[in-house]
Design a protein around this nucleic acid. Structure first.
Lengths: 243, 243
DNA sequence: GTGGTAATGTAAGTTTTCTTACATCGGACT
DNA sequence: AGTCCGATGTAAGAAAACTTACATTACCAC
């Protein structure tokens, strides 16, 4: 991602100086097709340097820049997580109501879901909430106590809110899946939330990188077999390969 | 054509301040249909005050954008906001229960408050929630719909939750304070939240940079005199200098 | 030369936004 | 009350922009 073509840099500069740029004018200025400009803008917006809109792009707001810092730090197993995110997104249709759990995998899934639209999203992850495009989906944060730097919300309020819900789907993350097929996590308060979300949803996906398998943690969330699908980004997503 | 409706003036101001505005966001902020916003933008662009593009509009000249750019780069606004944040933090004791509003000033205040400990924080700003050190304070996010890129939460749930609370303090931000002493904002849904927070708190601080004074916005949150303190980062913080 | 790869152009079909036209509502004037 | 008029909302068709997929070009490695 470190590579920016001269043209992309130029687009960035123009956007910052003029406040906004249109695809048409850029296409004319640079003497390339609109599609090429569009590709540049897509690359820049994915890098978080520019904000897209219909017909062009504008510079990113100042508060946005802060967010980027953090995201670049979250560089562990990015590729694997992205594959999982894409695989999960591929299984989710427009209009689905879903819960999304806490974690960087979930944040990537949130981004991947911005190609969908009209989702009804409920989450306990502040960061995932920010990753969603609020103009494409109806994103709701469940009120609760902020548990730590990962921006997770826990507490009675969360469980209570979830207990009264009926959702299509819950996307769940975990700390590890032990050899007995127990899905485990280190945080008791988060486990309570995960379990509540699973009860509220008619389908449940477990999203876990391959490295999570064979590792145990503090306490059990559920059994692998309790999930509708297990998505590890490697095998084609079929339910319960582990048992 | 000398007639500009208040809303049109505000659209113009927002466009100049942000570099560009989208129909969608304006429609949501002002609580009118997209078509109405479009008509405003058409009027403004025909008057030569705004430049239209698909999905929104931007200011006409680059001079304005350049000036703003310099301001940001030079960190003028940032410096002011930090002063305000420090001033506010100085007035808040350990253990206080407080509401904190949406905005970059509030995010800075959140950081400044990390020198305190044991605060009971309630917020509708996802970003402010992340800025707090959750191990020093008890930080709670009020559940609600994510309204936009600024990570603000709005909606009935928020107002409902606030209506049942009794807090020591509410920190409120705004878009402008007009010459009559009306504290104003551009987003109707956010205004509702601010008012609910003010009702729930026994003391209320208004945090606003000097540039906010003399500017009006869409609708009124409260009067300056309704606040316990007005903190602009310049004058020593004394309540209600403006009647 | 051959094969591979990255960047760009082109085109079909979809999605979003825009325009135009008409219905509704509320205030001002008679 | 009745009428007019401006502001706003809603809906259908038109226009603009987007996505996806594939063809083309240029360049580098072998």
């Amino acid at each position: 991602m470190g590579e920016l073509s001269p043209r992309q840099k130029h687009i960035l500069r123009l956007a910052e100086r003029q406040g906004f740029v249109t695809i048409d004018s850029l296409s004319e200025d640079f003497g390339v097709s609109a599609q090429t400009v569009r590709r540049d803008i897509i690359a820049l917006s994915e890098a978080g340097l520019l904000q897209r809109f219909h017909g062009g792009a504008g510079p990113i707001g100042e508060s946005e820049a802060v967010r980027l810092d953090h995201e670049h730090k979250a560089g562990v197993a990015v590729e694997e997580k992205r594959r999982i995110a894409e695989a999960a997104a591929a299984l989710i249709n427009d209009g689905t109501s879903l819960f999304i759990d806490v974690g960087t995998t979930m944040e990537m899934t949130a981004k991947a879901l911005n190609t969908r639209r009209g989702l009804k999203v409920f989450t306990t992850s502040i960061r995932a909430a920010l990753a969603f495009d609020a103009s494409r989906h109806e994103v709701r944060v469940l009120g609760g106590r902020v548990a730590g730097r990962d921006g997770s919300l826990v507490g009675e309020e969360v469980v209570l809110a979830l207990s009264g819900m009926q959702l299509d789907l819950a996307l769940i993350a975990c700390s590890g899946v032990d050899v007995e097929g127990r899905v485990m996590d280190f945080s008791l308060s988060k486990i309570t939330v995960k379990q509540a979300a699973m009860r509220a949803a008619s389908r449940t996906f477990l999203l876990a990188t391959p490295s999570k398998f064979g590792r145990s943690a503090l306490a059990t969330v559920a059994r692998v077999g309790d999930f509708t699908e297990v998505i590890d980004g490697v095998a084609p997503s079929v339910a319960s390969q582990v048992r």
